[in-house]
Design a protein around this nucleic acid. Structure first.
Lengths: 125, 125
DNA sequence: CGCCGATATGCAGGCGGATCGATGCTGCTG
DNA sequence: CAGCAGCATCGATCCGCCTGCATATCGGCG
């Protein structure tokens, strides 16, 4: 369901802090859980790590299957989930599909989880 | 598996940044994924939120079943998972079991996810 | 001491997800 | 224009997990 892809944006804009202040709504919990579920997999964490540390910050599928020890369809599957979650972006160049991290996606998730050490609205830290 | 409970501490100490710098090892990925998996559930996110926003920052099972709309065994099950993941701590007082957030647990996860905003080693492309 | 209320655990059903092999699709390339 | 290489999709299998019902356990109370 690619609604997950929009979940990050929807939660980012109102800047809700799910784990601070008022109890979160069921819908917010499901959206955040959807994004976290995309992260909560060893293979996908390693994919993000591999792509982030790749030469140009990008990598194609053929570069990722070997380090992971997974079949190409499985890697494509994980990349698809990460992309739909809004964590990766895909660019097709010729025969290759290059994936790279969406700049602030993961940081956004981290901010959503971080409780407000400060009072009301936190700016930066 | 209560090894998950120790996962947070193990990752915290060396202050590894799974999603920054070198590609993470398989073991680190599995540990982090284990903790994230505990978070990646709507019911558990709402539990954390409810407990955090409760009067004394603590709540017993009987206070949580109604807001969640889940059966008591199911709520106990989720609380158990969160506790084993190191996110909650349990205190039995009389007949009641009070749960509260482990102070910096979630913030630790957020820090693990947060890429180095500080230009430590990587160039921020 | 026996009952009741608050939790935890066992058990089972049902659904989602991780994985792989096979297959289809699309650009290169000779 | 064949053939091949890189990816995505499909179908199937296997495993883990969320949930509820039933039951066990433990502490307080009459």
């Amino acid at each position: 369901m690619e609604f997950v892809g929009t979940a990050l944006a929807e939660m980012t804009m109102p800047q809700i802090s799910p784990l601070a202040g008022e109890p979160i709504e069921r819908a917010d919990a499901e959206r955040l859980a959807g994004v976290l579920k995309a992260l909560a997999d060893p293979a996908r964490l390693r994919l993000l790590s591999l792509i982030q540390s790749a030469p140009e910050g990008e990598a194609c599928v053929c570069d990722l299957t070997a380090p992971l020890g997974l079949s190409q369809p499985t890697v494509s599957h994980h990349l698809r989930i990460l992309t739909e979650a809004g964590l990766l972006e895909r660019e097709k160049r010729g025969v290759w599909a290059y994936y790279r991290l969406v700049p602030t996606a993961i940081a956004t998730i981290a901010d959503l989880l971080t409780p407000p050490r400060k009072r009301a609205t936190k700016k930066a830290r």
